[in-house]
Each structure stands twice: as structure tokens, then as C-alpha cells.
Design a protein around this nucleic acid. Structure first.
Lengths: 215, 215
DNA sequence: TAGATTGTTAATCGATTAACAATC
DNA sequence: TAGATTGTTAATCGATTAACAATC
């Protein structure tokens, strides 16, 4: 894999390529050209070739791309060929829905522990760490200690807006990612990566586009 | 409000402006300059002025922007000054979490009905239509008829990927928005607007950025 | 009025598309 | 080999930043 400068726009599109290639692979399709893929994905063939070439020579002139190979290479680039260990912080409605969510690959993204301000017990989530028998929700004060003593990659943060920053402030671990569902922009230490899912912003964009279309 | 060409990038940022201005307004702050806001939001003052000017002259030279006025104008632009009537389609974990989600304005975005392949009864959701006493989940076959006979703006679609497109195909209503949580790209008729929340793509981006930072 | 800050034009930067030589 | 399709350079397009005149 070469080390050219990877644009933000390409990274945004990578998971979508992965999704389409996974679907094609599941259908048993072995090769695809940038032209064919461009029709499928509603993009330009030029963009697809440009995007894929940021990472390396995945294609073969005169042939196209091998679907399975390309899919796997993109998985490697994104780091989803390895297991991502997660903890849930905030066991409310949304948090519990994510625990049981089957949309993302259950084998690649695994919940290892659950924290909440109110410790309790919740029902077995579908993609909880395999073989675990205890499903206790731990008090949030123990989060930082847990992170320091366990190999966790991602914190799924589904606490109320007002609680989010305070929780993040206490984290001392480096090289960790926060999947942030709280509708606030978190300030984090160096070495901590944040990916926001600002649901209300998404809903507002829908509202805007809807109104615009009606004019 | 003038009618210049509004760039996609600006629309993406609008809800974030709204959030910051709402916070400032709640704190009782009356005026803000593009410079001050740029520090707060981690953007350039130039971009903020450029963005806001797409919609009209909201500022006052030598003074800055009136926080409350600007907030309200942005709300108007986004169409969240009016009520958005919604229905939930797919009453699983994620759907129910959204029903009870308090992150978006409960008075502006109201659930009016719930549909699912398996009709049942669910517990009172927090931001369900006010005063309603029945909380029956209706069979999904009745969705299209419901849409044709009620004043609905937005369908919140939280069904499995495989079911999503089929449901959308049956919708005959125009001028409706779909807030799509199914991890697939929907094909819709003209006049139907889709806003995607592809959670697994977001998670993959986090994975990528995390791995990149570790190298 | 003088100082501050906008609105807007011009310059730069980055991302997308077009074009075609390289090559399987 | 001939046809197909990539990889890559060059051209275009759009978005961001800089700069400053307008004006409160």
C-alpha cells in the first residue's frame, strides 16, 4: 500500500465502496470495471479510478477489478479486517439499540463492557462479547480504569449532551476512538479520534432539503 | 431571503451553526462577531461570513450578528420553525430508541404513527404525538394509505436493509422525506427526498481514522 | 468621528471530471 | 494482435481563505 496523501473525500466514500463490493461478492460476481461500478453507484468512472488509486494498484488494465480482492483490500485500508473492541457508555434507549444493532459486522465490532451512570442489568444484547455470561452495567466512574486495563479500541458514547464532555475529560488512554452520539462537539486529547453521529443535524438537513424541494 | 445558489457544503454546516447559536442564546448572549464564532466553532471567520451571506444580510457592519435573530433566521431557512410530522416505519430497537430520543426538538419533530411488519403495542414514547392514548403499531401494508390521507412530512425508516426498498417502492406520495437508517441506497420517485444515516459507514470511518493515527 | 466588523471580490486550494497513453 | 480498461496527467469546477472597501 502506497502512502500518498489520502483526501478526506475519499475516506468518506470508502465504506460505500466496501458495501457495494460486499454485495457484489455475495452475489458471486468476480470482476467489475470502473464503468460498471460507476453506473451502479451513481458516480463517475473517473472518480472511482482516482479514488482507488490513492491506495494502490488494485485494478488490471483491460480487465477491471477483482471484486473479492478489492473488497478485502478496502477492508484492510479501513482496518475492519481486525477486531475492534468496543465499550458502550450510556445504556439508555439509543445505547441499547446499538448493542442489539445488527447493521454492522458483529464479528468485527464487539462490545466488551457497558457503563452507565445508573448501574443495572440489561438483557443480553445480540452482538455482545461472545461467551460472556454477565451483563452487568458498570458504574461510569470505573470507565477510565477499565480502559487502562483492557484492550479497547472504541467507546460508543450515547450519554446525554451535558454528560458527554465530562466523561471524555476523564479518559487518559491514547489511541482510542469515540463514536459520539451526543449532540455536542467533544474536545479530546491528542491521540483520541472522534467520529460524530449528530442525528438531529441529519434530521434538520432532511427538513431543509424537503422544504427546498417544495418551493 | 435571497435566492443565490446555496452550496451543499453550506447546508451541511447550517445545523451546526444553529446548535451553537442556540447554546449562545440559552446562555443569554445577545451578539457575536464572525471572529468570536470562528474561535468557538473552530472555523474561519471568512467561511462563516461567506456561509451566512448565502441566505441574506444577517449581520450588521461594525457590530456583528444578533444571536437570537440569526438563530431564528437559520431555523426558518432549514424549515424547523414549522412542525414536521413524522411516522416511524420499523418498530425494532433502533426505531423505538428514536421514538424516545430526546436529542431533537420534540415540539418540531412529532411522531404521528408507528408501522411495522409485526403489529403490536409498544410503550408510550416520549416524543409521540401529544394527547394520543393509543400506541398501536399498525401493519406496514397500511402505510401508503395512511400517507395519502394524513399530512406527513417525514418517514423515519428503521427496517432491515432487505425490506427497505420494497417499502419505499409502494409509496405514492410526493413531497415527502425519508430519514433512512437502513444501510442501503434507496431509489425513490421524484419529489421524495432521502437523508441517510448509515451507521456502519460512520463506524468504519472511525476505524480508519483510528488506525491511521496509530501508524 | 474612529474603530469595528460586515459583505463581497479576488486568490488559493482541493476535489472532480475529462482525456489519453500505458498495458493487460 | 486488437479491444478493453486501467492509471495518471491535465482541465475544470467548486469550496475555502484572504483581503479590503463599505458602512454601521
Amino acid at each position: 500500500m502506497e502512502d500518498r496523501k489520502i483526501s478526506k473525500a475519499v475516506i468518506t466514500r470508502l465504506p460505500r465502496y466496501f458495501r457495494y463490493l460486499s454485495d457484489l461478492n455475495d452475489k458471486g460476481i468476480e470482476k467489475i470495471s470502473s464503468k460498471q461500478l460507476s453506473i451502479l453507484m451513481n458516480a463517475t468512472a473517473s472518480q472511482i479510478r482516482q479514488d482507488l488509486n490513492t491506495f494502490g494498484d488494485f485494478g488490471l488494465q483491460g480487465y477491471g477489478y477483482n471484486v473479492r480482492y478489492l473488497k478485502n483490500e478496502i477492508a484492510k485500508v479501513m482496518g475492519i479486517d481486525e477486531i475492534n473492541n468496543m465499550v458502550l457508555v450510556g445504556a439508555g434507549n439509543l445505547g441499547q439499540a446499538l448493542l442489539r444493532y445488527s447493521g454492522f459486522n458483529k464479528k468485527q465490532f464487539i462490545f466488551n463492557a457497558i457503563f452507565d451512570a445508573v448501574p443495572t442489568t440489561i438483557k443480553l444484547p445480540m452482538n455482545y462479547k461472545e461467551g460472556t455470561q454477565k451483563f452487568e452495567v458498570q458504574p461510569i466512574d470505573e470507565l477510565n480504569m477499565y480502559l487502562e486495563t483492557h484492550d479497547i479500541d472504541i467507546i460508543v458514547l450515547t450519554v446525554p449532551k451535558v454528560a458527554a464532555q465530562e466523561i471524555v475529560n476523564k479518559i487518559t488512554k491514547k489511541g482510542i476512538g469515540i463514536w459520539n452520539f451526543a449532540s455536542t462537539d467533544l474536545e479530546v486529547n491528542k491521540g483520541v479520534v472522534v467520529e460524530n453521529v449528530h442525528l438531529s443535524e441529519s434530521l434538520m438537513r432532511l427538513s431543509y432539503n424537503l422544504k427546498k424541494g417544495r418551493n
